[in-house]
Design a protein around this nucleic acid. Structure first.
Lengths: 187, 187
DNA sequence: TTTGCTTTTTGACTTTTGTCAAAGACTCTG
DNA sequence: CAGAGTCTTTGACAAAAGTCAAAAAGCAAA
């Protein structure tokens, strides 16, 4: 799904806006396992996954690699610490598949918002969506068992299991790889 | 801290805006243990805690009561499902202390945003703050041990322990009351 | 197809956390 | 201040999840 078409699902884009966008959006192709953003890096771009899959993960001081979340086609992605707070990212962003990523700079983003206020609507929509997802995630981590979280993921994003290694999924669920393997074997 | 003063820390309010706000803001006093919003209720108001403490919690189908979060003086609070999505709230909001709560309706909020675009700035700021906190919360729940989460809370909000019962804090941390008690006894 | 590499599973054991029940401490009210 | 009620701690045990190590399975390239 193309960014522009994606935007058009939500708001009307006049021809001049479309031209504006086409000028500032950068479309790039990345191979599998490419690191897009590494910890400590300032990355002030808003990304949109057109094809492929990004894994966002965290490296603890103990050196453990924990998946914070997966971003699939059709999602907006930012290194929040950088994009929102102008701080170095704490997380790593890497492609897990060959991916096509469109992105615009923070400056252009602000510019667009100022010039075309109808985008503010969309901006807020995206943040609302994010808040909704995060709230669900928190309650799941807070009071569901590992098995329940596994079942939910299986229901909400079954395709992830075809695309991502179980180790990464386990850390996303907040459990060890072995525990996930055992949960899976019991059915 | 008064809402208006609080707002003035971030944005400039001309005298007419202030008058506008004073007209639509409802200031109410509630006793301890008062239920502000219950599950199933549509509650489309943006609240601001001027004094006191709100506990937001969830009732699982098993009847277990789990604290989603605490809202102390100086925070904006909404029943997200209602305010954002116009759906019934899934969570309960109750005061844990005598509290003073200012609130405005969703309609007035939208109205203010339209009439005084400088509020959009603040609106986004508040959402960014929320996203930041939620992200930290998710990573904590995902890969910290109960003890680490306890230590963090003790550091970030020590006063909570004077104000809230340990049972509520335990469920907020995602552990049983007994586990929390044992963590505390080991120091 | 064989080899080497990565991912996944399994087993044995340890640690962490949960559950249930009871005792103790604390608080508020009459 | 006594007594009821609530909150917190403790003990004994059970369940869930983590760790370490090794085997098995899957995959890709020579």
């Amino acid at each position: 799904m193309n960014v522009i078409s994606f935007l058009q699902q939500t708001i009307h884009l006049g021809p001049e806006i479309e031209a504006d966008l086409a000028r500032i959006i950068v479309r790039e192709q990345f191979p599998k396992n490419h690191i897009l953003v590494r910890p400590g890096q300032y990355y002030r771009r808003l990304m949109f996954v057109e094809e492929g899959l990004i894994r966002e993960h965290y490296l603890s001081m103990a050196g453990k690699d924990t998946t914070y979340r997966f971003h699939t086609e059709g999602s907006f992605v930012t290194a929040d610490e950088s994009f929102i707070d102008n701080q170095p990212s704490q997380y790593t962003f890497e492609t897990l598949e060959d991916s096509v990523i469109c992105s615009i700079s923070h400056t252009d983003f602000e510019h667009i918002l100022r010039q075309h206020p109808e985008f503010e609507q969309l901006h807020i929509l995206v943040m609302h969506q994010l808040i909704r997802e995060m709230k669900e995630r928190i309650t799941a981590l807070q009071f569901q068992t590992a098995t329940e979280r596994y079942e939910s993921l299986l229901k909400s994003q079954p395709s992830i299991f075809q695309r991502v290694s179980l180790g990464h999924i386990a850390s996303f669920l907040g459990i060890s790889q072995e525990t996930l393997s055992r949960i899976r074997s019991k059915r």
